[in-house]
């Protein structure tokens, strides 16, 4: 195929691979469970970018364009995981965190974290990463879909085949669980 000035040629594309793989992989690794899946998604994103290179037409930076393709690949991944009937087991509910009359149960009452210092953010990110790995798959899928941003809630519900209420409730339960998990790691860390 003859290349023209406005079409990305193979040489330029290889430079993109060298320049952006690190950032794309870091992003993907923080958003899926397994490292090899993250690598596959980055590779799929580059292949899709190469195949769709005519559409790039310099309208945005390569980085922005590659990230938007990667986000779509991550969304595809979680949509598939969400629909996989195998992963839908018994889901934990937030009932454990509340008393019969819906107050916070003893031992689960949120207490301010008292965050200070910039080094704490890194630690919090580590705690979060650990706690995300412990979420049931379809809760994790709901959370990941929410934070991929590009898509609005309505579109996500359609893709996952759930109602808006079901969707935000799953994100909510996931976050209650995450908060509890992070809190317990912080408490352990202080002792």
């Amino acid at each position: 195929m003859p290349t023209t000035d406005h079409v990305v040629d193979k040489r330029a594309f290889q430079e993109w691979v060298h320049a952006h793989t690190g950032d794309l992989l870091r992003y993907a690794k923080s958003r899926v469970r397994e490292e090899d899946v993250a690598e596959d998604l980055v590779q799929l994103a580059f292949i899709a970018a190469w195949e769709g290179r005519k559409k790039f037409a310099q309208q945005s930076s390569p980085r922005t364009w590659l990230f938007s393709i990667l986000k779509n690949k991550i969304a595809d991944h979680w949509r598939k995981a969400y629909r996989d009937p195998v992963v839908h087991g018994l889901e934990p509910v937030d009932a454990a965190f509340f008393t019969g009359d819906d107050r916070w149960a003893p031992g689960h009452i949120p207490v301010e974290w008292g965050l200070d210092g910039p080094d704490q953010e890194e630690q919090m990110q580590r705690f979060l990463a650990d706690c995300l790995q412990q979420l049931p798959t379809h809760w994790r899928a709901a959370v990941e879909m929410k934070y991929l941003k590009e898509k609005n809630a309505e579109a996500i519900c359609q893709e996952l085949g759930i109602t808006a209420t079901n969707y935000w409730q799953q994100v909510h339960r996931a976050k209650v669980q995450l908060r509890e998990c992070i809190s317990s790691k912080m408490t352990k860390n202080h002792h």
Binding site: S30, P110, E112, W113, E122, L128
Partner: peptide
Amino acid sequence: AFQHQSEVIDTLLEQRGNG
């Protein structure tokens, strides 16, 4: 406290992978 922490978690979730 839950509300504050929910906001902190939102920020952390958005900033993942920026290290």
